[in-house]
């Protein structure tokens, strides 16, 4: 039982980067834009957030307030990734470039950006790009009061996490509510399904696409922040985030473009990612465990295309640019 509880907690901790990335990408894809730049956005967010906190603490020294450092890191991570997506949005929506190619360019740029500034500021910091212990504690400290955490089993399973995890779950619930229950959310989905019809119905397609892409990108950036601050302990290490963005893209499919499925999906993926460290009884090589998330995604992808259930399909116009004049 303890093993299971610990395993579950570790899976949640591991999966949250993916949860942020996936939720951001779901928002983007629901508006019909397939942004393959998630990998780059996670890098941009992670490095910018860390650097903002680092520079602030360096400037003020001992006078730095940990809370301000956290707030600045949040703003920087969100803004950097949102600006990266704005670039993507401008290119694909206004300048009508190919979404796949532009997304890949964003990944190349974003990974380069993250690694470049991460390395550069590590040099500035004398070999270490790290936040203060006080600020780091805010990220790792459990959010909820002790009496909840002390409930046996359930307390550990549900109430023992840091604030970034609850924030992410909250985003998922808000998104699910937004898509299903609000007029604006339905308009957004209409834009992703059939932009021409949405346009005819008086929905501002361009505005929805821009907003969804930039907000979604910003959320992906928070995933990067989570990774550097929580998984990485507030410390930059080169190449550590490698592949997280692609896993998030995979998880979007696994979650069938539904925010709440992304929550438990990210726990499943987190579990698959750490299984090689914890479950060794079966004599399966560790590297085979690590490809499981991708194999599972392929199976899901194939089965949704074979079964053709309408509610499980990708947004119909996903990846297709919309030009009003070229209908």
């Amino acid at each position: 039982m303890t093993f299971f509880v610990n395993f579950f907690v570790a899976a949640v901790l591991m999966g949250t980067t993916l949860m942020y990335g996936t939720l951001g990408e779901i928002l983007t894809e629901k508006a019909g834009n397939m942004n393959l730049g998630v990998e780059g956005l996670i890098y941009m967010g992670g490095s910018s957030g860390l650097i903002a906190a680092f520079l602030y603490e360096r400037a003020l020294g001992a006078g730095a307030v940990p809370g301000v450092s956290v707030a600045l890191a949040f703003i920087a991570a969100f803004l950097a990734a949102a600006l990266g997506s704005l670039l993507y949005a401008f290119l694909t929506i206004t300048l009508r470039t190919n979404q796949n190619v532009t997304g890949l360019a964003l990944t190349i740029f974003g990974v380069g950006y993250g690694e470049f500034f991460g390395e550069y500021f590590r040099g500035v910091g004398g070999g270490r790009l790290q936040i203060s212990e006080a600020a780091g504690a805010i990220y790792s400290k459990p959010l909820l009061p002790a009496f909840l955490r002390d409930i046996p089993v359930v307390g550990k399973l549900l109430f023992s996490y840091n604030f970034m995890i609850y924030l992410c779950v909250a985003i998922a619930f808000v998104m699910a509510w937004y898509f299903a229950r609000t007029r604006s959310g339905m308009s957004l989905r209409a834009v992703g399904e059939d932009p021409a019809t949405a346009d005819a119905a008086g929905i501002n397609v361009t505005r929805y696409k821009y907003l969804a892409t930039c907000l979604g990108g910003g959320i992906c950036g928070l995933g990067g922040l989570y990774f550097t601050m929580v998984s990485g302990g507030g410390n930059w290490s080169t190449g550590a985030m490698d592949g997280k963005g692609w896993l998030a893209v995979a998880l979007v499919i696994f979650a069938l473009w539904r925010p709440l499925r992304a929550v438990w999906g990210s726990i499943v993926f987190g579990a698959l990612m750490i299984m090689y460290m914890r479950v060794t009884q079966f004599h399966i090589p560790t590297e085979i465990y690590k490809i499981l998330p991708y194999v599972v995604t392929v199976i899901v992808l194939i089965s949704i295309s074979i079964r053709q259930k309408r509610e499980n399909q990708p947004p119909a116009s996903l990846g297709v640019a919309y030009f009003r004049e070229e209908r």
Partner: peptide, 16 residues
């Protein structure tokens, strides 16, 4: 990694 960043920028500009 500055080459990746520069490559990305060139790709953006050429796409545009």
């Amino acid at each position: 990694s500055m080459s990746d960043m520069l490559t990305g920028l060139i790709l953006f500009c050429m796409l545009a």
